[in-house]
Design a protein around this nucleic acid. Structure first.
Lengths: 233, 233, 233, 233
DNA sequence: GATGAATGAGACTTCATTCAT
DNA sequence: TATGAATGAAGTCTCATTCAT
């Protein structure tokens, strides 16, 4: 089981072609797999097509990945869960206010994930998780859990520092998550349901949602019961 | 030389029970198909499983539906598009204010569609449309188009009666649609992404969204047009 | 096993419709089956299509014919082998010269069989006999054998009466048969191999062949060895 | 709820022997297919049986031929139409008299095609063309058309060189073709219709027919045109 | 007698996975 | 390490035949 945690490192263009390709195989396979999984879904993607797009034979793919499911897991690690150590470290060290931190987190997410093909993987899981329980468990453990944890830590920091009211955390995590899920869907779904509209500008959409969320979370000096709809997402 | 005699194949006169309920069959098959399509998606649902769940054999299914795709279309007609005539008529005859009408439409939608298995079909199309172009075209024509049209007519009524500001219609249709799509997903997606939160109460969620939308749509006596992006959902 | 030897008798048009249809069922089924077997072959003809063309249900067909093969046999009896008693009787009683008799036989064959759909059945057997050994045996017994016998008796009569030379009979039978087989094929085969020509006039074609055959058969007062090609078909 | 895990399916590591003879496979499959198509016809031949006879599994066949129809086309190309370039070249370069050329053509045809299994393919098309229109079109284009063209060119050469009378060409083509079709049938049809006779020696049969045809075609010094129908084969 | 709903073996085709080279 | 030929279970759909009504 090749762990393939090997985040593609840029490589000097001076190497001999054959040698370059040889070492790059797993990365090329992962890139091809990402493309195809996002484009057609997990079940509808054929491993042979992945291999062909990566310029290798079907047999070679199985040399690096024990099965189609392992290939998928590697794609998830390469493109999503592999980034958590860095993200966690980055936010562990964050110095500014928590509202700024949350805004930054959303911005970073959009730049690194939401706007990239990675978001197609998350969207795919929404659809196919039911048919592939093992993948669902893996995704839950490697992506959903750490993601929730990270958000929860940010929120907890806000509470601890007196910036946020000490509200229910599960609910708040979801409030942060909702627009992300929504954007992932919009990016990768059948045009007929979304695109026939004025294009939603994702950055603005996110900004608005973060603002709304912050409004809801912020510790207010004296708050009469004046919130109603804003909390329900 | 395998001498065939390929046709005559005497059947053992064992127990064969002809249930003989012609009129009930299509409905039972459609119900089973709806269940399974929603549960596993179109591609991952096997026709034989549909047949078995309906209590008949594989061949019987093809007595009523010419192919798996036709079965799916029939499910869509039975559960979604077949209701449009009634909906259209109902809203054609609606007497109250347009804001009330919109609220009523959303409530009705949730009761009849959003909260039912039908919404799983729409969710399924988001994922699989790309792999089944003919189904995508069918769904676009039979569901998406009429749905957009109906919403558009409601909005136009509001504008015509001076209740709504004459804003861009495509955009407004989408503003109405967005929460519906979101709820459909929440209903039918991998729990790991949604349910690990306080349950969102769909009715409240919808009510809040309708209220927000109405705020945006309402014709205001004197409005210094100073918001733009924030309105995007 | 309904023997269906019932050569369709013309029926007075005075009877009640329902009653007429009831008694006519087997005949209508046989007619439909003949059409379809000739048109598409045995294996490619679906029993349901036969039933539909006859205006009855699939179940009714199996009421009259135990299987698709039995249906085919009934078609053969109805259209071909059922005529042998009459033909045999007619030629038993023939009074003229044997050459005339042979000419008459060929003419009769063309009128009653060669030019009719029956000839499609014989052509069909050429193609499909290998796949349906039981049908092949049946056809051999009910059609080929009696046909050969009839021809052989005619030829023997010519020899006995001193009109034909006492040549090998098997060979002569074949000489008579060849053009019949050929015409059956031409009638019912893929146009691309035959029809792109000046139409062969079957009657002339037959006449020429009979003449050639008679030339070969005729008892000649003094024959030096002057025959060569004429005898080889 | 049959939880699928639909993809991963560990295979017992039992005996699997990869024969590994890529280059030989297509030929072996084509040979097996030729045998079976000739023996049972197109529709009645099962691809699995072809594969088994070639010593491979069902899936392997589809590695080389995209469908049963493509397999059939490949058989036709391999055994019949692929030879046309060579035949055309050979007759383009022919130096002798046209009557000799025609005799040679028939002899060559018998040696290479008529007496081989290839002729079973042509016989098969007579029966099944109607049920497989795409195959019929293919055969017409790849075999029938070039074949007619070749014969026509030979006849035209005879006319041009003053060896043949300038008779209608379509008709003459057919005169040449008829015995070939007849022999193909005799080779591959139900014995009951043909073999119960003294065996027809195909070479003699062909020779006789060619002679007859040549008699008809030959330019005669002074011919009071008094024959017409008798010439029709 | 007549119907037609129901059956299920079997056809073609796909594709993840294996393994000799 | 890399290949790609080979496998075979599984999926969709067909159709002769049965039998309750």
């Amino acid at each position: 089981m090749p762990s393939s945690q090997a985040v593609t490192k840029p490589r000097p263009a001076t190497l001999v072609r054959h040698e370059r390709r040889k070492d790059a195989r797993p990365g090329e396979l992962l890139a091809a797999a990402l493309d195809l999984f996002v484009e057609k879904g997990f079940a509808a993607t054929r491993v042979e097509e992945v291999a062909v797009r990566a310029g290798v034979s079907k047999g070679t793919l199985f040399l690096y990945f024990a099965s189609k499911e392992e290939l998928f897991k590697a794609v998830v690690r390469e493109n999503i869960s592999g980034h958590f150590p860095q993200w966690n470290a980055e936010f562990e060290a964050y110095q500014g206010s928590t509202p700024d931190m949350l805004r930054y987190a959303m911005t970073l997410w959009w730049q690194q994930q939401g706007s990239s093909k990675s978001s197609g993987i998350a969207k795919l899981m929404l659809s196919e998780a039911g048919n592939f329980p093992e993948l669902a468990a893996f995704f839950q453990q490697e992506v959903v859990q750490p993601g929730h944890d990270l958000i929860r830590r940010i929120l907890q920091r806000g509470v601890d520092r007196g910036e946020f009211a000490p509200i229910d955390k599960k609910y708040s995590v979801y409030a942060v998550l909702a627009p992300m899920i929504f954007l992932q869907l919009m990016q990768h779904s059948n045009p007929c349901c979304f695109d026939a509209t004025d294009p939603v500008v994702p950055e603005e959409f996110l900004a608005a949602h973060v603002q709304t969320t912050l409004d809801g979370l912020r510790l207010r000096p004296s708050s009469p019961a004046s919130d109603k709809g804003s909390r329900s997402v």
